[in-house]
Amino acid sequence: MSEEKKDFKPKVVAFACHWCGVGKNEINAVEDFPDFKLIKLMCSGRINSALILKAFEKGADGIIAFGCPEGKCHYNFGNRNAAEEYKIAQSLIHLLGIEPKRLRLELDFFSEDGKLDSVIKEFVGGIRKIGPSPLRLINENK
């Protein structure tokens, strides 16, 4: 890996549904990643491609979203909407040439001790390997 990647501090945005457990708690792993933003939502159904694209536009290197498992949505269908929107967002970022690993949806999630940290660590580890988002330059040129 190049020097640049060694110093690279990934900017990560996490969208988290309140009911899946993630949104209720602060995330311990945050200390490791200074550029980590947790955005709490009442339901993963609020996530749409507009939010995801906006975060990439603003220079996020990775976006992870958490929601409840199939059949367990507090609002019945929110996580299904999230899954549909996620598919569209995935295809849009593919068109834009953004690496697919920069976006992840975890719809199998009820917070268990330690599981959340390990998921985030693994995700951020993946981002570190890919390096900074090509879209960071939009903001740096200003």
Partner: peptide, 17 residues
């Protein structure tokens, strides 16, 4: 939700592939 505006702004990135 501003998705298309974001798409347009993302395309201003010089190193897009």
């Amino acid at each position: 939700g501003g998705a298309i505006q974001s798409l347009m702004k993302i395309m201003t990135a010089p190193n897009l592939n």
